[in-house]
Design a binder for these strands. Structure first.
Length: 266
DNA sequence: ATGGTTGCTTAGCAA
């Protein structure tokens, strides 16, 4: 089972790349972020023709999340059940093959002294509260998305440049850690302790084209029931080299087909 | 300290 997350920066603008990538990669589950469209304008038919069930939670112009899956998506839930935090479409949940999947688009926060940064912290806090309320660390649960936080220095090409920004400031890492403290494993980090690979490059500095910079601000968090099945994690950085790419690339993890038996060596 | 680019929407915002 292959599970992926990708901030596509407009699903309609990225349809060409998305369909080619789905065909080549054949992921079983895909969490999308920044779809940037209302649900009526989501390119559902073309994705269904590619062999996927589709669940969407979008809004006009900004934000927007989706889940694609080869098998049916059950018990779809939009938002986290918070009147204020749900104004922006940033969280979508669905159950696929018995695994609860959350597609999450954490607020960027703009700058440390911007009000948006307070919203970012509140949103992460709300997500933790939502996990506490609705789920147990014993559930098979995945939270995949754009975290807008690089959890470790090895997730940043030039860490010192980013420590005073919203993507890597200690206060932001703390806010993010409160989510993972629910008992979620950062699967990419667990499989790549040395880091050095990234999922986002700023358009404005052309850092990807220049072969410098990059941050891993996207990832897949999972409870033990799921992380114990993860046999590999990968970043599809070649997507960033295409013409008119998203500024983010896909992050993936592969699970063994069947849950491993905890008592198999008994 | 500022600006650089992209996308949505059409001047300005968000990232």
């Amino acid at each position: 089972m292959l599970i992926a997350t990708w901030n596509v920066n407009s699903v309609n603008a990225r349809m060409g790349h998305l369909l080619v990538w789905l065909q080549a990669r054949q992921p079983d589950v895909v969490c999308l972020q920044e779809t940037k469209t209302v649900d009526d304008a989501f390119p559902r038919a073309a994705i269904e023709e590619a062999g996927y069930h589709v669940a969407v939670h979008g809004q006009k112009s900004y934000n927007g999340v989706a889940i694609l899956a080869k098998t049916p998506i059950e018990d779809v839930q939009r938002g986290m059940g918070d009147q204020v935090l749900d104004v922006q479409a940033r969280l979508l949940a669905g159950t696929v093959s018995g695994v609860r999947i959350l597609s999450a688009y954490v607020p960027n926060g703009a700058s440390l002294k911007d009000e948006k940064c307070l919203y970012k912290v509140a949103w992460l806090s709300g997500l933790r509260a939502h996990l506490d309320e609705r789920y147990s660390p014993d559930d098979p649960l995945v939270v995949a998305g754009d975290f807008n936080v690089a959890p470790r220095d090895v997730d940043i090409a030039e860490p010192q440049k980013w420590h005073k920004t919203v993507l890597a400031h200690p206060s932001m890492r703390e806010a993010f850690a409160r989510v993972t403290d629910f008992d979620l494993v950062d699967v990419y980090a667990a499989h790549h302790p040395q880091g050095g690979n990234y999922s986002w490059w700023d358009y404005r500095t052309a850092s990807y084209e220049r072969g410098v910079g990059g941050l891993r601000i996207d990832g897949i968090l999972a409870t033990a029931k799921v992380s114990g099945r993860a046999i590999s994690a990968h970043i599809d950085h070649q997507e960033r080299a295409k013409e008119r790419p998203s500024d983010h690339v896909p992050v993936l993890m592969r699970l063994v087909a069947e849950p491993t038996r905890e008592t198999s060596d008994r």
